[in-house]
């Protein structure tokens, strides 16, 4: 994973542009024609979509006017706050669990290492929905009463912890071997080597990847309605029943989620470019 430390490519020389030679006059003409044709194609596609909305009556004001009201947005923002709360809680738990799983796996203690590896692979290989259903059904069957917040936060955290353990491990592997050897030769204990030498650097390598993983956490929280936790999606469903406007509401909510995740991804890329590390997923 030494590629982790490879510095970002200088801007401006992207591979997509390098593929083509500097076009001559004839090629330039072809490109202009192709650009115009493809623009027409795209415009036709957009027109077809808008037409479908129009024909089916989905552009009618009654489906969109309530977005002008503050109460709509206040309710959606309340849901968004719920999403943020549960995502951050799950993210923090996953961070701690992922770190512990990684430390266990690289501890060199055989039984602990095997257990941590199995747990990591388990949470990475199971859909988060299955874990959510687990926390929805099983504690209730055992007679435990669990708040819906934790029925959502815990499974999302567990699902992410497996991935984060692998991200941390990649970060640890990216620390040059020579440093560990040097630390051994001056007589540091394995624990000291991990916590004083390797981990501080490893964490720095993986910060962009950790930010990028937040996207997965946010996405996983959208099934909050399974446990009826009031997140953005759940509140949108409530609004849909009161305004009877399914298409417009789900579209707006989808756009909100896309924007949030897009910004998280952008932040991750920004940090990666500033520190010159690669994002691992």
């Amino acid at each position: 994973m030494s590629a982790l430390r490879r510095a970002a490519r200088p801007r401006g020389t992207s591979m997509r542009d390098a593929l083509y030679e500097e076009p001559g006059p004839r090629t330039r003409r072809k490109i202009v024609i192709g650009t115009v044709l493809s623009a027409l194609l795209v415009a036709a596609g957009i027109a077809a979509v808008v037409r479908q909305f129009y024909v089916t009556g989905q552009l009618a004001p009654r489906y969109w006017s309530f977005f002008l009201e503050w109460t709509t947005w206040r309710f959606l923002l309340q849901g968004l706050l719920g999403t943020v709360e549960v995502a951050i809680t799950a993210g923090v738990i996953a961070l701690v669990l992922g770190l512990l799983l990684m430390l266990g796996r690289t501890s060199g203690v055989a039984p602990l290492s095997v257990v941590c590896r199995v747990v990591t692979d388990f949470f990475r290989g199971v859909p988060s929905l299955l874990l959510i259903y687990f926390f929805f059904f099983v504690p209730a069957q055992l007679g435990l009463k669990m708040p819906s917040f934790w029925m959502l936060a815990l499974p999302v955290a567990l699902a992410a912890s497996g991935v984060l353990a692998e991200v941390f491990r990649a970060g640890v592997n990216a620390v040059p071997k020579g440093q560990v050897e040097a630390a051994v030769s001056i007589g540091l204990s394995p624990a000291k080597i991990m916590f004083k030498i390797v981990l501080p650097q490893a964490v720095r390598y993986v910060i962009p990847s950790l930010i990028a993983q937040l996207v997965v956490v946010v996405k996983d929280t959208t099934v909050a309605y399974v446990v009826s936790y009031p997140d953005l999606m759940q509140n949108a469903r409530v609004l849909i029943t009161s305004y009877d406007a399914l298409v417009s509401m789900y579209l707006v909510v989808a756009v909100i989620y896309i924007l949030i995740n897009f910004l998280i991804n952008k932040a991750s890329v920004y940090v990666a470019n500033r520190t010159g590390v690669k994002i691992i997923r």
Partner: peptide
């Protein structure tokens, strides 16, 4: 890349029928 799976599934399964 950024849309949650459930949101997309709901759009396809429940919103598209409203668009015939």
């Amino acid at each position: 890349r950024n849309i949650p799976g459930v949101a997309l599934l709901i759009l396809i399964a429940y919103a598209l029928p409203d668009l015939k």
